[in-house]
Design a protein around this nucleic acid. Sequence first.
DNA 1: GGAAATGTTTACCG
DNA 2: CCGGTAAACATTTC
Length: 274
Amino acid sequence: MPELPEVETVRRGLQTHTVGRTITHTLQLHPRALNPKSNAGLEVLDGAKILSIERRGKFLWFVLDRPFVLSAHLGMSGQFLVDPVDHRHTRAILHLKKGSKKSVIHFNDQRTFGWLSIEETINQMPISVQSIAPDIFESSFDSKNVARVITQRSISIKTAILNQNILSGIGNIYADESLWLAKIHPESRTNELKVSDVERLIKAAQEVMKKALEVGGTSFDELYINVNGESGYFDLSLNAYGQEGKACPRCGTEIRRIKFANRSSHFCPKCQKK
DNA sequence: GGAAATGTTTACCG
DNA sequence: CCGGTAAACATTTC
């Protein structure tokens, strides 16, 4: 469920509530909470101090005073919650302390597509993030070059922007919203688009995600909430995603939904021509 | 009961 | 190798 704005909202929450604290002990409550590729079980975290929380695209990791990191992916329904009251779907628990102050972080995940992993890093990036391209908010993100790479492929533009190895952070909601804003049909062939069209699309994605981040991301239900259990409000600003049958806010034509690449795509058939 | 849900990976086919 | 499609993972909701 969570895309870049939601994961960044979670990162900020974790930054506030966990940095400078020490993990006293952990509890793994579900076998799928740990990535099968993890170097070790969560018990190696005992005694580790949390130095910072980093993110690339939809991947998060805790930097520790250890030669390894705790990395995490929220999948479709993963959450980190600080001192939660509700323990449903809790898959793992980190017990923290700072002096005499104690707190707990729950990793909750209804659908269990998310995971935690103990990993080494190369150039400050966990192994699982090595093949993930810079996300659209990183200073190393080169919009023009990415646009050029995309036009050199012959795939549909939506497939291209969802590919985390080309650029990262965009998921199904923001892909549809960005394509709507840039007036590009999701099935447009990348080799038939101009580099400037793709650059405009990337700019649209940056704009949409920046606005979403400002209001705490997109929540449709309790499946996405921040570390304090609060929803984001960007669902109120959606123009295309989930708007099938409603009027396009730009031209009034009914928004259509098509199945595409195994997922739903929402677009305005008048504004977004192939 | 069927369909769908904010993700990623893998298998299979042309 | 490239690209498209479907399925797999698991759970819940409409």
